[in-house]
């Protein structure tokens, strides 16, 4: 039997069969690879959290075990600094939380034990020039100064805005206070060289990455501010111990 390849019936059936076959194949691939992808994403998050506390995996360490050995405890707090029961810190999506009003947010805290004492790591999330930027900030146990920072981005310009993920940028945050001399929350400014503000904590912006740098500054302020009560509690606890 000779099939007419140009007939409408043939064309429609051909398209339908092709789409079903391809759809089925893609579903299979997705199902097969999904577990590995989820693990990668979780490991990547763990790596970022540890990077904020300046802990980097060496070649023979797996992220999973390194994370287990350092992050002993994680919990969520609200804007009053009280622990929220039943929320898993690792599963909270900070990008969604920053969209809510400050007093409705669930704020994750990761308690990290390092060689230099206990650090409290909190996530931050905001917008850069082309897309989302995010990061993790490790606070010293006194809740006043930053111990380390990690920043990530989705698609900032390579060599310009993308430089925020480099230690050359994030390393500047070490030791910066986030509260002013009168105890108010002031965050850390990200400013161009030559425009350093007097009396406030700042780091140098990435040259050529102005909008991304401003995004980092805004992200730090809006994401860290609701933690103020929690950080104040830390401060009180640490001064009680002394």
């Amino acid at each position: 039997m000779k099939i007419n390849k140009e007939s409408n019936v043939y064309t429609v059936v051909y398209a339908a069969v092709l789409v079903v076959v391809v759809g089925f194949a893609l579903a299979l691939v997705y199902q097969a690879l999904r577990p590995a992808q989820l693990e990668n994403i979780a490991n990547d998050t763990k790596k970022q959290i540890l990077a904020a506390a300046l802990i980097y995996p060496t070649a023979d360490q797996t992220i999973g075990s390194l994370y287990e050995s350092h992050i002993k405890e994680s919990f969520c707090v609200d804007s009053k600094g009280d622990v929220v029961e039943g929320a898993k810190a690792f599963d909270v999506n900070m990008a969604n939380e920053v969209k809510k009003p400050a007093d409705e947010r669930v704020l994750p805290v990761f308690v990290c034990s390092t060689d230099k004492g206990v650090k409290y790591i909190v996530p931050v999330s905001g917008a850069g020039l082309w897309g989302p930027i995010w990061g993790y900030i490790a606070m010293n146990a006194d809740g006043k100064t930053i111990f380390g920072a990690y920043f990530g981005h989705q698609g900032e310009t390579p060599g310009l805005g993308a430089e925020i993920e480099r230690p050359a940028f994030s390393g500047q945050f070490e030791g910066k206070p986030i509260f002013g001399s009168n105890g108010d929350f002031e965050s850390v400014l990200v400013v161009k060289k030559g425009q350093e503000p007097a009396g406030r904590a700042y780091v140098n912006a990435v040259s050529g990455g102005t909008i991304t740098s401003q995004g980092v500054q805004k992200m730090l302020f809006t994401s860290l501010e609701p933690y103020t009560a929690f950080f104040k509690k830390l401060e009180k606890e640490s001064s009680n111990k002394e």
């Binding site: 390849k5 140009e6 051909y14 398209a15 092709l18 391809v22 893609l26 691939v29």
Partner: peptide, 21 residues
Amino acid sequence: TIPTSIRIIVQLVVVAALVVV
């Protein structure tokens, strides 16, 4: 086997599927 009238669409489907993979 490809019908001439939808050959570009067929090509696109194949390419898109491979790219997703």
